[in-house]
Design a protein around this nucleic acid. Structure first.
Length: 469
RNA sequence: GGUCCCAUCGUCUAGCGGCCUAGGACGCUGGCCUCUCACGCCGGAGACACGGGUUCGAUUCCCGUUGGGACCA
């Protein structure tokens, strides 16, 4: 058995999107599971749309997700000689021919064919040409067979057969000298010794023509596995119009890479009832056998749930670093004026439970970092009423001498006041919460007070009292 | 339009002929916990697209219908 070699071959024409990541992930898992090689290849033959910026985005995204590659990134534009060589070989062997038809001519004939009720495939006009057409640069077409069938043996789909009659003489090299997608893929996969082509379902229809190319070139085709598509809520192929689909967006929204990896791995694949997988478990358990055939709808809510889960699991030091970066980006924390790291970790730990994303965490952290807070108007009018002013004064006074200023000690003060005044705890806690955080939602009030510290706590309670009067 | 693929709760899925009065997860929802919001815990609603076969027995196998998707243009 040859060692497994798989590849991920994105086109650098924009963002690295969710569908691409899932394909990359499955290839990566397959390679790691089999102790094989994962190769990265940039399909940049479409010069008009490919950009270096996009390559960078793809590489950064892969790194962020921890999908490390063993070889590459290779770029198709650096492999032009290899494609030409293969084109020449087919030409010499009479398995390909020059085609001088212009796009306009082709289009006109296709329309005519449709109008006449014939299938709009290439009419093979240039097949019988014996001499070049002067003044035109030819494309090269593959001479395909009209007879029999081509069977794609797919590891996920089983045997899928196509009538060769349906396939027309596809262009393998455009008149500008660039290879076409189907041809470059075949040449690349063969010359890179790819053993398993694991890619999106959208390429299944391309596979029979590629198999014919392998055969014409005298190569053994690799194994194929076509993954079901990821769809949007409207059941069409997931795309930008369905919302956040680029990896960079998820980074910015405050998702953890392990959450995205876990979520995507469960889209079209499963292992019994298990939902949470560590990276190591994924590698151990991944198999193409348990990849489903049906396309799956992308569900942002489940991803959010997983992200919440992984935020709970994450090391507070790491979260503190990530949160700090977001805080700086927002200008809440100035460079050079970073809060104490241990204190920040304490703050982050406290916020972790109710944070589904790092963005949520960042927002919840703001009141603890700024000097002045703005009170939510509704919260203020509901909880900072005249009758609570004396309670707050009493509380502030009793808090002043508390030492150490901890959850436990603060709780004692609250308990005493509640008992003495015959109040419900909520009558004290809610106004304090508003005074300290500006809103009605926060972690437990004693934790909030401890993390906020004595000085800020007293100051904000007193400010609230002034506001009432 | 042609070719190909697909079909279990709203969504992701388990199920590979009897263990299924169909299991888990997200979401939704009732309750508990409670200083708010969450978390957590307990409970609930919720699916085998339809019609034929095959079989003692079909969610599971076959055929068709319907529906959806992808690709080619």
């Amino acid at each position: 058995m040859n060692p497994v070699r798989v590849r991920f071959a994105p086109s650098p024409t924009g963002a690295l999107h969710i569908g691409g990541v899932r394909t990359a992930l499955f290839n990566w898992l397959f390679a790691r599971h089999h102790n094989g090689k994962f190769i990265l290849r940039i399909e940049d033959t479409d010069q008009t749309r490919s950009t270096d910026e996009s390559i960078k985005i793809i590489l950064d995204g892969m790194k962020w997700l921890g999908l490390d590659w063993d070889e590459g990134p290779f770029r198709q534009t650096e492999r032009m000689d290899i494609y030409r060589e293969h084109v020449d070989r087919l030409l010499k062997q009479g398995k390909a021919y020059y085609c001088y038809c212009t796009p306009e001519e082709l289009e006109a004939r296709r329309k005519a064919a449709i109008a006449a009720g014939r299938p709009p495939k290439y009419d093979r006009k240039c097949r019988s040409l014996t001499a070049p057409v002067v003044g035109r640069t030819p494309a090269v077409r593959f001479l395909s067979s009209d007879e029999g069938q081509t069977i794609v043996r797919d590891l996920i789909r089983g045997a899928v057969s196509f009538e060769n009659q349906q396939l027309d003489d596809l262009i393998i090299q455009r008149s500008d000298g660039f290879p076409t997608y189907n041809f470059a893929v075949v040449v690349d996969d063969v010359t890179m010794n790819i053993t398993h082509v694991v890619r999106g379902d959208d390429h299944l229809n391309n596979t029979p023509r590629q198999i014919q190319l392998y055969q014409a070139l005298g190569y053994e085709p690799p194994e194929f596995a076509h993954l079901p598509m990821i769809l949007g809520p409207d059941k069409t192929k997931l795309s930008k119009r369905h919302g956040a689909t680029a990896v960079t967006e998820y980074i910015d929204l405050g998702y953890l890479p392990e959450a995205l990896v876990n979520y995507l791995s469960r889209l079209g694949w499963s292992s019994g009832d298990q939902e949470i997988f560590s990276r190591q478990e994924l590698i151990e358990k991944f198999s193409l056998d348990s990849v489903g055939k049906a396309p799956s709808v992308f569900n942002p809510e489940k991803l959010l749930w997983l992200n919440h889960h992984y935020i709970q699991q994450a090391d507070p030091g790491r979260l503190a670093g990530l949160a700090l970066a977001l805080l700086k980006k927002d200008g809440v924390v100035a460079s050079g004026k970073e809060p104490d790291r241990e204190w920040l970790k304490k703050l982050v730990k406290m916020l972790t439970e109710r944070s589904h994303t790092l963005m949520e965490m960042k927002t919840a952290a703001i009141p603890f970092l700024v000097d002045e807070i703005e009170l939510d108007e509704k919260a203020r009018s509901k909880h900072l009423t005249n009758d609570v002013a004396p309670i707050l004064s009493e509380l502030a006074n009793r808090l002043k001498p508390v030492e150490p200023f901890t959850h436990t000690e603060v709780e004692k003060v609250f308990a005493a006041i509640v008992v003495e005044k015959g109040l419900k705890l909520g009558k004290v806690a809610q106004p304090v919460r508003v005074a300290l955080t500006g809103g009605t939602v926060s972690p437990g009030i004693y934790d909030v007070i401890e993390v906020m510290g004595k000085e800020k706590t007293i100051k904000r309670i007193e400010a609230a009292i002034t506001m009432i009067k």
